[in-house]
Amino acid sequence: MTQPLDTDNPDEGSVRARVAIPGGGNVVMAGFPGLDSGIDGRAYIDPARMELTLHRISAMGAEVCLLLPEPGELPEGALQQGYDALVHAGIDAILLPIRDYAAPDAAFLGRWQVLRQRLHAMLNRGGTFAITCQYGAGRSGLVTALVLIERGMPADQAIAHVRRAFPEAVESDVQIAWLHARSPLGADRFPMRDAPS
């Protein structure tokens, strides 16, 4: 079942939602681990918030975490710090940048063609992976909806499914249009694992 989280609770870290994938597995959507801003509005990495977010992602069973931010949108060194912290926590970190509010580009799609096999296999055995962008809504929601589309769900249903978990997910018209262009994928789909009888 898709599980919204209490995002107003500071004890939640940057985890936004756990999205149940029909047919098996879960995707955890999160903001970049530890990203916060001071009273002056400047972004920084809060080590305690990072640790809490990584602990929650790990406790939810995530084996892999996709890092979607571009390096320039985070505080200097933050992307490497997050990558290293994920690896230290035993989570396979994969850099897969998408420009904020944009649709994935050709570089993303090239890497996705290889990576998606692994992710769908993980879901089919009931596994969990995490996706982080800057806030955990737009790009994280976009890629989660893409996974649902690849498993045979129409784009409108995929977006609605993700938004039930986190209403701010999939933030731009460009992202919505891109998802509609991916659906239906026909032979490109990854069928869901048969439900146990």
Score class of each variant (00 low, 15 high):
A187S: 14
G41S: 09
P71I: 03
S197V: 05
A43T: 13
P104E: 01
R139K: 12
G126R: 00
S140C: 14
F108E: 02
S140V: 05
Y44T: 11
R193V: 10
F166P: 02
M50H: 03
I39N: 13
M192I: 13
T132L: 03
G110C: 01
L5Q: 04
H120C: 10
L146M: 14
L142N: 07
V64W: 12
S37C: 15
L115I: 03
A17L: 00
H180E: 09
A158C: 07
R189Y: 07
P33I: 08
M29F: 01
A89M: 09
A48I: 06
M60A: 09
D173H: 06
C133F: 06
S172A: 12
A78T: 10
I57L: 15
Q81S: 09
A195R: 02
Q157V: 08
P69H: 08
Y101C: 07
S197L: 07
H55L: 09
C65L: 10
D46T: 08
V147T: 09
M60P: 00
P47T: 13
G23K: 14
S58C: 06
A165Y: 05
V174E: 15
I159P: 12
A158E: 07
A93Y: 09
V87E: 15
D11I: 11
A158H: 06
D194H: 05
C65S: 15
A93V: 07
P97M: 05
V64I: 15
A59R: 14
P184T: 11
L68R: 14
G25W: 00
V170L: 09
